[in-house]
Amino acid sequence: MPDKLGRYRRKRDPERTPEPVPAEGPLPRGDDDTFVIQEHHARSLHWDLRLERDGVLVSWAVPKGLPPDPAINHLAVHTEDHPLEYATFEGEIPRGEYGGGTMTIWDRGRYETEKWTDREVKIVLHGSRASGRYVLFQTRGKNWMIHRMDPPDASWQPPPAPLAPMLPVARDRPPRDRDAYQVEFAWGGARALAYVEGGRLTLRSGDGFRDVTSEQRWLRPIGGALGSRAVVLDGELISPAGDGTPIYVCYDLLYDDGRALLAEPYARRRAALEALEIAGPRWQTAPAWPGGEIGAVRQAAREQGLPGVVAKRLDAPYEPGAESSAWIFVST
């Protein structure tokens, strides 16, 4: 009988990694109904799908996570079988070791097997985050694809196609009904919309359509920071210190994990943005203040050499590509 965990053990030193490394011997047996999905921040972010089968966890690395929509298939790379104990593993695999990085449990639960062959596996997942019918099918060698077989959740919406950003109108004075607004700095940077899905970033230019991701490679880690969350952010690339080191300030959220927010009022979009707690070494959520404080915010902008402020109506939807009076730019 071949050792199903031999490849797993050869790749790991139990003296150096906190991962479970069982000794050779008879495999434990369960009910072949446990699954786990682990979020693995290794050299590149991916998700590991593991299915209990014949005493081991049969495993696939899924770079973009499980597809939410039957119209989209995702790559799934077949990896070595893992021990059943791995179904509860979370921890930090040391740098330099195989799979070095942070491993956390994204979801776990029970699954049913509808079909299992060497080239095709049909399952039904019953987890708190992952549920539904999926099929894994081999395409070439260790490369497989994973396909969702049933419709997405009724509330799920696909990410929007590339959008042109909403623009403010310029006024000489702040709005009179200031309590109906929230105010932000006008940064004077380069407008950019960030599309993040499956831990990967696509950054689009100020017209909303040109892909500038390769020109701003430093921002790619924001994808890993957001993990499996699919979002579309509106913001600007700025150099606040004046030293040529850009950061990304985001001030609107247009899509959030299956929910299109364009029709939502700005107040709700802003609350959802702040709930994401976007804060990193070179990306952050732009500050905002009640509209009644626009005078003080305008003065602060002037002192910092910023071009002005933008007052945004709390009840206004997002109007892609429009110059809208719901956003008012007032210079310093």
Results as ranks from 00 to 15, higher is better:
residue 217 R to P: 13
residue 189 G to T: 12
residue 221 P to H: 09
residue 183 V to I: 11
residue 206 G to R: 09
residue 207 D to G: 13
residue 181 Y to C: 05
residue 159 P to E: 13
residue 163 L to M: 15
residue 159 P to F: 10
residue 215 E to P: 00
residue 184 E to H: 02
residue 215 E to A: 13
residue 159 P to T: 04
residue 227 G to R: 11
residue 212 V to M: 11
residue 207 D to A: 07
residue 231 V to H: 05
residue 179 D to P: 04
residue 157 Q to R: 10
residue 186 A to W: 02
residue 160 P to K: 05
residue 171 R to V: 01
residue 151 P to Q: 08
residue 183 V to N: 09
residue 187 W to C: 01
residue 186 A to V: 00
residue 220 R to A: 14
residue 228 S to R: 09
residue 199 G to C: 07
residue 233 L to D: 02
residue 219 L to H: 08
residue 192 A to C: 04
residue 138 Q to P: 01
residue 210 R to T: 14
residue 196 V to P: 03
residue 231 V to A: 08
residue 142 K to V: 14
residue 212 V to Y: 07
residue 135 V to Q: 15
residue 146 I to C: 06
residue 215 E to I: 00
residue 194 A to Y: 05
residue 142 K to A: 15
residue 219 L to I: 15
residue 148 R to V: 11
residue 138 Q to R: 15
residue 234 D to A: 09
residue 220 R to H: 08
residue 225 A to P: 00
residue 200 R to D: 08
residue 166 M to R: 04
residue 191 R to L: 02
residue 188 G to P: 00
residue 195 Y to V: 04
residue 159 P to V: 13
residue 226 L to I: 08
residue 150 D to L: 05
residue 146 I to T: 01
residue 233 L to E: 01
residue 143 N to D: 15
residue 132 G to P: 13
residue 202 T to C: 12
residue 222 I to S: 06
residue 226 L to K: 09
residue 194 A to M: 11
residue 144 W to T: 01
residue 142 K to F: 12
residue 218 W to Q: 10
residue 132 G to S: 10
residue 193 L to Y: 05
residue 136 L to I: 07
residue 183 V to K: 06
residue 220 R to T: 14
residue 139 T to Q: 15
residue 147 H to Q: 15
residue 181 Y to M: 06
residue 190 A to V: 04
residue 168 P to T: 03
residue 193 L to I: 11
residue 227 G to F: 13
residue 152 P to M: 05
residue 230 A to L: 02
residue 170 A to I: 06
residue 172 D to Y: 01
residue 135 V to L: 14
residue 227 G to T: 10
residue 172 D to K: 14
residue 182 Q to V: 15
residue 174 P to I: 10
residue 228 S to F: 07
residue 185 F to H: 08
residue 229 R to A: 11
residue 165 P to R: 06
residue 147 H to I: 00
residue 230 A to Q: 08
residue 230 A to K: 08
residue 132 G to E: 10
residue 226 L to F: 11
residue 154 A to V: 14
residue 152 P to W: 03
residue 136 L to E: 09
residue 202 T to N: 04
residue 151 P to K: 09
residue 179 D to I: 04
residue 204 R to P: 01
residue 148 R to T: 07
residue 195 Y to M: 10
residue 205 S to I: 00
residue 219 L to E: 02
residue 224 G to Q: 13
residue 227 G to C: 11
residue 176 R to Y: 13
residue 196 V to F: 12
residue 224 G to T: 14
residue 165 P to S: 10
residue 202 T to G: 06
residue 137 F to Y: 15
residue 211 D to V: 01
residue 201 L to A: 12
residue 134 Y to A: 10
residue 150 D to K: 01
residue 224 G to S: 13
residue 215 E to R: 13
residue 147 H to V: 00
residue 161 A to P: 02
residue 229 R to W: 02
residue 137 F to R: 12
residue 189 G to N: 07
residue 222 I to Y: 12
residue 212 V to R: 08
residue 180 A to L: 15
residue 183 V to M: 08
residue 133 R to Q: 12
residue 225 A to M: 00
residue 209 F to P: 02
